[in-house]
Amino acid sequence: MSYQANFRVWRGDSSGGGLEPYQVEVNEGEVVLDIVHRLQATQAPDLAVRWNCKAGKCGSCSAEVNGRPRLLCMTRMSTLPPDEPVTITPMRTFPVLRDLVTDVSFNYTKAREVPSFVPPQGLKPGEYRMAQEDVNRSQEFRKCIECFLCQNTCHVVRDHEENKPAFSGPRFLMRVAELDMHPLDAAAEEGLDRKRSAQEEHGLGMCNITKCCTEVCPEHIKITDNALIPLKERAVDRKYDPLVWLGSVIKRRK
């Protein structure tokens, strides 16, 4: 069952651009990325798009379909109204490089700012013991395919370039939560308080839990409920618990 669909695809680069109309064949079962590939093969050989696995596992083909942040490879044409044009635009939060490709280096910069896993002293490789129930939560966050759709949709940075330096975004706040909940992470022993760093260095306080990130996550990770809110609660506990506060002040003075 094929039909001709109308597409509007943003073409351009950092100096500007606009929506270009295309009419293109759509077949049963196809996803938006199939259509982009057909456009490349037949009408627009230089149409720039990122993609790799075409199976929702690598998180490369992030863009906006009719204004909604989506993976192009996981957006089936059958979920879109057939009689209306389909509009594909690049992710809005990141600078455009060309057509649907954006400069996502913001995310790689933020990734470097999160201190890595600290292996526990005294445990050799092969000696790690962890219960499944204790790793479940961090494993949920490690399902992240780094498509950066949550970073793209988060309104703290979506239209607020000025917030970018101070805010790591849902993906990397979730990374802090993942390490904080890792049963064997020894950051605390090294004097690193991950909760405080979430608050003070990664802008956790700017998040006002509107759950937009959770809504767009193609892996259905409950970013807000399971990562950000618990991190906030624990950060708050620390900040406002007078004993914890006193303890941390004394520790810092040392």
């Binding site: 890595s116 896993f117 292996p119 490789p125 092969g126 790690y128 962890m130 219960a131 499944q132 790793v135 961090s138 494993q139 490690r142 390490l179 890792h182 992470d185």
Partner: peptide, 12 residues
């Protein structure tokens, strides 16, 4: 085993 010391979380 080395991957675990780098932060990997396998099923248990």
């Amino acid at each position: 085993w080395e991957l675990e010391t780098w932060g990997a979380l396998f099923d248990r």
